[in-house]
Nucleic acid binder design. Structure first.
Lengths: 115, 115
DNA sequence: ACATAATATGAGTATTAACTCATATAAGGG
DNA sequence: CCCTTATATGAGTTAATACTCATATTATGT
């Protein structure tokens, strides 16, 4: 059993294990959102949003693109968004729910743990 | 967007976000393993194993069953094991790999993040 | 009842992660 | 060049989590 793999799996789960980071990811959804928009949507402080954006960006879960004074963040892999929407049964944009309704066993398992 | 759901999702990810807890879950696999066997398989100290078993048990991810002086732990939902095996591409028992090879998008996404 | 093996737990320490504050950098407009 | 807005970052604090040690509990055999 390779220790490296366990570590990287634990790292991925750790990135997703904070409610504020999840809020931020949900706020971005499948669009490109500037930091200001994320702050507005989440009601978190600017510093806290930037603080959480860092590990999400550095791990590669989020992409950035600067346009003038704004930095736009987006979820690198749309499937991550589908996965979270599917797990939570709630989408920032209602129409996302359709395409996100995964019915494979892993999804069913995880959904069981949502209260 | 319901805050409760985000919290419970974060909690589930948190349970899976520690490499030692993953080691313990992998050590159990799809069988029933006594604490002694888990200690032996993981080379972690007795106290540390019991320490990590507690939240896994209390959250319901693991089941317990006492037989004489031994307490046997098992993974409550076999799909969790499939999910982890599928993500890591490594199984304690080789034959598990077959049935664990999920090809749905969420799995492909997560697998991308394993180094 | 005592000795031993298996497991759990309370209390303390240490490490890490989350958060805040002040300040820095970057861009655009006057 | 200065001023304003947008974002990032270093340093410090607090809070949570991982770990250790000593000891408690539960069960079994004698």
């Amino acid at each position: 059993m390779d220790e490296k793999i366990l570590d990287s799996l634990a790292r991925l789960f750790k990135l997703l294990s904070d409610a504020n980071r999840l809020r931020i990811i949900f706020a971005i959804g499948k669009e490109k959102k500037s930091v200001s928009e994320i702050i507005e949507a989440t009601s978190l402080s600017q510093t806290l949003v930037s603080f959480h954006l860092r590990p999400l960006r550095e791990s590669g879960l989020l992409n950035t693109e600067r346009r003038g004074p704004f930095v736009y963040y987006s979820v690198s892999d749309p499937v991550l968004m589908d996965l979270l929407v599917s797990l939570c049964g709630v989408s920032p944009k209602e129409e996302l729910k359709e395409e996100a309704n995964f019915v494979c066993p892993p999804m069913r398992f995880m959904r069981k743990w949502m209260t």
